[in-house]
């Protein structure tokens, strides 16, 4: 006998927690989670939109980024994600995150190590950690949590744990966040 799934708005299966890279306080009125890929052009387009949203919502917003590298389509995406995690291990995740989206067109391993140096990180350590695939399991964990939560492509956003299926241009995304912030 076949069973049919009912259609409901997919929800985050892995709640935001200590493991995550977050900007903003845990007690913020609204949490925006992005599953993204540093080499994905749409994520590149979403990047300044998220920046603007952070500016407008200020302390009412907590923003979390999780990796969803589409390795088959984007050959540099996996290593770029690992480089961001490597920077995170040296307390500069967000600096690297920004740099990667601003330099989406140059993401080979030499570039990644160069950015680590530019940001004042121990670049040699980042190079070694990339070569040793130290953060591969962590990136894979992000990816798996995305698949399980109904991430079908990048970028995919979740607002207070519920997948945002509307457009992610500034106005509709901001409107959804404002609504969610009032509910809480």
């Amino acid at each position: 006998m076949s069973r049919r799934d009912t259609q409901a708005a997919p929800q985050l299966t892995l709640p935001v927690g200590e493991r995550d890279h977050a900007r903003g306080a845990a007690g913020a009125a609204v949490t925006l989670v992005e599953y993204g890929d540093y080499e994905c052009p749409y994520c590149g387009r979403a990047y300044p939109i998220v920046k603007e949203i952070q500016k407008r919502l200020g302390r009412r917003l907590r923003f979390v980024f999780r990796n969803f590298p589409l390795r088959e389509s984007h050959p540099h995406a996996q290593h770029a994600a690992e480089a961001a995690e490597a920077a995170g291990a040296q307390a500069k995740f967000w600096e690297m995150h920004d740099r990667l989206f601003e330099r989406q067109f140059a993401l080979d391993d030499d570039n990644l190590v160069e950015y680590a140096g530019d940001l004042g990180l121990d670049a040699e350590r980042v190079r070694k950690e990339l070569a040793g695939r130290v953060y591969e399991p962590r990136v894979r964990e992000d990816f798996r949590s995305g698949v399980a939560s109904g991430v079908n492509g990048t970028p995919t956003f979740f607002v207070n744990g519920v997948r945002h299926d509307e457009a992610w241009e500034l106005e509709p995304l901001l409107a959804t966040l404002e609504r969610a912030a009032k509910v809480k």
């Binding site: 076949s2 997919p10 698949v147 399980a148």
Partner: peptide, 20 residues
């Protein structure tokens, strides 16, 4: 057949249902 799902024709059904 242990599980099945028909998605609206224009909507990517994703992989979460399959994995579950």
């Amino acid at each position: 057949i242990r599980w099945s799902y028909v998605s609206p024709i224009g909507v990517n059904p994703g992989a979460d249902g399959i994995l579950r």
